[in-house]
Design a binder for these strands. Structure first.
Lengths: 219, 219
DNA sequence: TAACGGTCGATTGTCGACAATCTGACTATA
DNA sequence: TATAGTCAGATTGTCGACAATCGACCGTTA
């Protein structure tokens, strides 16, 4: 019996709403009403409020007292100037602290995620691929004994994903993207911390390069 | 009339608890019970729960489902390897984006904070000094048009303060610390972004250097 | 004695209802 | 007409109560 974790409604709802936002089912600036969500998911408003608080602190929604909340919009400056560099630093730190602790289980986890990616490519399911990408990096961050690395990462990563989710088209490059992850794992296997830190930075900056086709939308 | 902001109980309570934790009134690993806080501050548990959620996402307390919460403890590795570098990057970003927008009002704000510092030194009130230090850097982060800079900064900075609050003794160096801030403002006045970024990095890393006198243990 | 199982108090998770506040529309009045 | 005042609906802020869960205590039993 694997996990059997007890997960609060708040956390489940947060995961679900995050998924909807990142999948584009809830667009930026769209209004979010507590009671509506409570009715839709059959939970109380208290749960919804705690969920919204989490998403707000993660920067995915913005709420103003007595007025309401809406899905946040992310600017390119914010992502490229602030969030991506922070993310690079977090993952480099996690590697510095955690690479030596990577064991067979860890690499099995990586393997499973790589399989997920292949399946996502086969199904041409971008959201599934992004989910897998997220899990891949989560393994890295979780591999480090300093718990707060993960919690800070959690509060930064969703916005980055949201930004790139807007620019939908990088379908063609997915298999190249998969190869990139495979090469990363190979570097990790060597146990070389410096090389791994270098590789993860290149990976994050490189694959998120401005580029592919983005067209701006001002609202 | 200045602000007249409407502040929710949740936010007021969060500020108060943060203050208590940072002042050492609540020590790491001490247990925190929702109902007790609700009674003590005359609010409902719902408010307390939302407050605790905020503090948890800011890394100041740790809570496990159905078991309870306790005040977090911060490791030196976490602060020096992760939090401080992240903070440096955030403030550098804020300067890059916001320095050009600093106006007379901004420098008046800096001036007021410097006065607070002087008063704190005169009163030998370390907590007051740290409060002022916090406000000083908050001005920088708020000066930047990208709102999320502040929200991320909020989720990182308290833990750094908590760490150094543990090492109580740097009383003697306070006036030197004040001078450091004055020099920073002078650099900002020149409007030189590169120099300002350099200065803020040196300031943060330098003044948080391991060491000055952590010699005393007056509890 | 040591292992098993049940009971009970303490604490957190969830809920529905009431209070405070915002927004927009409507009316009265100069 | 334009402006100020008032009202009603919608939405968030807060509250007290009930349900679920945990941990410790305690008796039973082999």
């Amino acid at each position: 019996m694997g996990k059997l974790e007890r997960i609060s409604m708040k956390d489940r709802l947060a995961t679900e709403l995050r998924r909807k936002i990142l999948a584009g089912d809830l667009s930026p600036h769209s209004r979010v009403v507590e009671q509506d969500l409570a009715d839709e998911y059959g939970v109380s408003r208290a749960v919804v409020r705690e969920t919204m608080l989490v998403l707000e602190l993660q920067g995915l929604i913005i709420s103003t007292p007595y007025k309401g909340s809406e899905v946040a919009s992310i600017s390119r400056t914010e992502v490229e100037g602030l969030l991506l560099p922070l993310r690079v630093h977090i993952e480099q730190f996690a590697i510095a602290e955690g690479l030596a602790l990577f064991d067979a289980d860890t690499f099995e986890d990586f393997g499973r995620v790589l399989v997920e990616m292949e399946r996502a490519i086969y199904n041409k399911d971008i959201n599934a691929f992004n989910e897998a990408d997220m899990r891949f990096h989560a393994i890295i961050v979780d591999g480090c004994p300093t718990d707060s690395a993960r919690s800070i990462w959690d509060s930064i990563h969703p916005r980055i994903r949201m930004h790139f989710a807007m620019q939908t088209g990088r379908t063609g490059a997915l298999s190249e993207f998969l190869e990139d992850h495979k090469r990363l794992v190979d570097v990790f296997r060597t146990g070389d911390v410096a090389a791994s830190r270098e590789a993860i930075a290149a990976h994050i900056i490189g694959t998120n390069e401005p580029h592919l086709g983005l067209l701006d939308e001002s609202a």
